[in-house]
Design a protein around this nucleic acid. Structure first.
Length: 291
DNA sequence: ACTATTTCCTGGATGC
DNA sequence: TGCATCCAGGAAATAG
């Protein structure tokens, strides 16, 4: 359920709280681990690393790491001075990154020393400030991994230009709703924001992506950006107990026009909002406003 | 190369 | 109150 606006909010919160802190040690839960990288790789990539920045990429939280926790700093500065313009890509590209996907129910908590360990805690990173970063995820759809140059699988909805956006759907027979959810096309849009965007663009979710006119697509492009930007400004949507890294709720759920409003009157024309299932996902729309 | 369907997982809601 | 059943859904795996 955390989608782009929620992950953006969480990443910003984490960045303001733990950037500059150093990961001293890492504990990973056993049993079925929610890991995409081998546990040993994660531990070595994180331990003794300084968190330089926390940011969002698609629906992923990226912790950019750098050496600097221990005695490795002298070696690092030498490399940077000498090899900087030699022809190696860029010093940033080979720095480790900790990639966190929250799935449906994942949370990344910053805990003060001594806080009791919550049920479903799958990873704990002890920081030199004494605090702990904890990954808690009851439903286990979240994933942890390490990378060096992580990229979103598709386009960033807030960065892609109209022409690129239009191109994504060219020739696609899948319903536009499914296409919006496909992370390889657009990275970051999930069920709530897909439905809200389609409503604002007045496009039915079941329409084949390829059938959308230039005009449909340009309204959809604007709608996606508008919805995501408004949601970020309101701290995301708090449904089923979502809170950000500071425990604050978002308020975009109050702006939902169709999502979760099955049977309630459309805010534009009073026609009851319909809910259908498309590719196994619920889709909410106004049968009168959306064509 | 695509598209559609199934699977994973648990808490909360629903029904008897 | 208890117990079974269903549902939510992101993304990977599987099937067509």
């Amino acid at each position: 359920m955390p989608e782009l606006p929620e992950v953006e909010t969480i990443a910003r919160g984490l960045n303001s709280r733990v950037a500059g802190d150093v990961i001293e040690s890492v504990w990973l839960g056993t049993k079925p681990e929610p890991l995409k990288s081998p546990a040993a790789d994660i531990v070595t990539a994180l331990e003794s690393k300084r968190i330089s920045e926390v940011r969002r990429v698609g629906k992923h939280i990226v912790f950019d790491l750098e050496n600097g926790g221990r005695a490795s700093s002298t070696k690092k500065s030498r490399v940077e001075h000498k090899g900087a313009r030699a022809r190696t890509p860029a010093p940033t590209s080979d720095k480790a990154q900790w990639i966190v996907h929250l799935g449906m129910t994942g949370r990344m908590l910053v805990c003060p020393p001594g806080e009791k360990i919550e049920k479903h805690t799958h990873a704990v990173a002890k920081l030199s400030s004494g605090r702990e970063l904890r990954f808690v995820d009851p439903r286990r759809f979240g994933r942890l991994s390490v990378s060096h140059r992580f990229e979103a699988p598709g386009s960033e909805p807030l960065k892609v230009e109209l022409a690129g956006f239009v191109n994504l759907f060219h020739g696609r027979k899948t319903p536009i709703k499914s296409a919006l959810l496909n992370q390889k096309l657009l990275s970051g849009v999930g069920n709530i924001y897909a439905d809200e965007s389609l409503f604002r663009a007045r496009v039915r979710p079941r329409r084949r992506a390829a059938s959308l006119t230039r005009d449909d697509l340009s309204r959809l492009y604007r709608a996606v950006r508008e919805v995501l930007e408004e949601a970020i400004a309101l701290g995301g949507s708090s449904i089923s107990d979502y809170v950000d890294s500071d425990g604050e709720e978002g308020f975009f759920q109050l702006q939902h026009r169709v999502y979760g409003r099955e049977g309630e009157p459309c805010l534009v024309c009073r026609t009851p909002v319909k809910r259908v299932v498309i590719a196994g996902r619920s889709a909410h729309y106004c049968p009168k406003c959306q064509k």
